[in-house]
Amino acid sequence: MLNVNPDTVCRLIELAQAYHVREPANIPNEDNNTVDDWSQNMLDDHKDNTSYEEFETIIKDLEPDQQHEVVALLWLGRGDYSLEEWDSTVKLARQQWSPETAQYLIDHPLLADYLREGLELHGYECD
């Protein structure tokens, strides 16, 4: 049974997807067609992108044991551990905890997929 609210994890999944779809902003080349420049820059990251800030806030607002479970869900969904090893996986996440949990999580480009898979293994689905 999870101590972290599955709805919270679903929100983290949404934010991770929004964050990882972004690309670093680039300056259009004057030699290129402006239409090409527009299509290249549609997904560029801009200062108004707040997905990471919200992601980090949610993680920091979680109780430590809930943060451990989110990390354990990542590992479970990635296939590092099985559901039968859940308690020991959470214990390992507790031992390896750092204040940089949000950054550790978001550094995984497939985080949304891993969290979703981890939730599904626990019997939960995001709408």
Rank of each mutant, 00 (worst) to 15 (best):
M1N: 08
L2I: 10
L2E: 00
N3G: 09
P6N: 00
D7P: 00
D7A: 12
V9A: 00
C10G: 00
L12S: 03
L12A: 05
E14T: 15
Q17A: 07
A18R: 13
H20Y: 03
H20S: 05
H20L: 03
V21M: 14
R22W: 05
R22P: 00
R22F: 02
E23K: 14
P24D: 14
A25N: 10
N26D: 06
P28A: 02
P28D: 00
N29V: 10
N29G: 08
E30S: 09
D31H: 06
D31Q: 09
N32S: 08
N32G: 02
N32L: 13
N32D: 15
T34F: 09
T34M: 10
V35L: 15
V35D: 15
V35Y: 09
D36P: 06
D36S: 09
D36L: 12
W38K: 11
W38N: 12
W38S: 11
S39C: 04
Q40T: 12
N41V: 01
N41P: 00
N41W: 10
N41R: 11
M42L: 15
L43S: 12
L43C: 10
D44T: 13
D45Q: 14
D45P: 04
H46D: 08
H46E: 13
K47Y: 14
D48M: 12
D48C: 11
T50L: 13
T50W: 09
S51W: 04
E53M: 08
E54P: 05
E54N: 06
E54Q: 13
F55T: 03
F55N: 05
T57L: 07
K60D: 15
K60S: 14
D61A: 03
D61N: 11
P64Y: 00
Q67T: 02
Q67H: 04
Q67G: 11
H68D: 15
V70T: 04
V71K: 14
A72M: 11
L74T: 09
L74E: 09
W75M: 10
W75Q: 14
L76N: 03
G77N: 02
G77P: 04
G77D: 07
G77W: 08
R78V: 09
G79F: 05
D80H: 12
D80A: 08
Y81H: 14
S82I: 05
S82Q: 13
S82K: 07
L83S: 09
E84C: 10
E84L: 11
W86H: 00
D87L: 03
D87C: 05
S88V: 15
S88H: 05
S88E: 14
T89W: 01
T89H: 03
V90D: 01
V90Q: 02
K91E: 15
K91D: 13
L92G: 12
L92R: 07
A93E: 03
A93R: 01
R94G: 14
Q95P: 00
Q95D: 05
Q96S: 13
W97G: 10
S98F: 02
S98N: 07
E100N: 12
E100G: 03
T101K: 04
Q103H: 15
Y104G: 07
I106Y: 02
I106L: 07
D107T: 02
D107E: 05
D107P: 05
H108Y: 11
P109G: 03
P109R: 06
L115A: 00
R116F: 04
R116A: 15
E117M: 07
E117H: 06
L121V: 01
H122G: 01
Y124W: 09
E125W: 00
E125T: 07
D127Y: 08
